[in-house]
């Protein structure tokens, strides 16, 4: 049981790291949002699951935190993307690399 929990903890931290790496490596702001949102959402959920397996008595609050992240993180990202799009931030393209 502890082994599975530890595996989830490391997996979650790894996905958080990959998400941050994507935020640094991607060429434009929309791709950065994509990399950031997906990887960090799953990373935090896996980490929360790992903590929950270590401490089964914390699950209600962990579930609240997890549901909150799962619901609000995509909404925040979409709102940001919409704001950038309406403000005229261009989409990067291989043929004509943006600014």
């Amino acid at each position: 049981m502890t082994l599975i929990a530890d595996a989830f903890l490391i997996l979650g931290a790894l996905f958080c790291f990959l998400g941050a790496l994507g935020v640094v490596r991607m060429p434009d702001v929309y791709n950065r949002i994509q990399a950031g949102t997906k990887a960090v959402t799953l990373g935090s959920l896996a980490l929360l699951l790992g903590v929950g397996l270590h401490h089964p008595d914390w699950w209600p609050k962990l579930l609240a935190v997890g549901l909150f992240i799962l619901l609000t993180n995509p909404i925040g990202s979409s709102t940001l993307a919409r704001a950038f799009y309406n403000a005229g931030v261009p989409v990067w393209n291989k043929r004509r690399p943006g600014p």
């Binding site: 990959l18 790496l21 994507g22 490596r25 990887a39 959402t41 799953l42 990067w92």
Partner: peptide
């Protein structure tokens, strides 16, 4: 879908050539 999204994104982020063709 969430799992596939992350494996997919990890592959793109980790490959040196950044294989992306973004469009709206």
């Amino acid at each position: 879908a969430l799992l596939r999204a992350n494996i997919d994104m990890a592959r793109r982020v980790l490959s040196p050539s950044l294989p992306i063709r973004p469009a709206l």
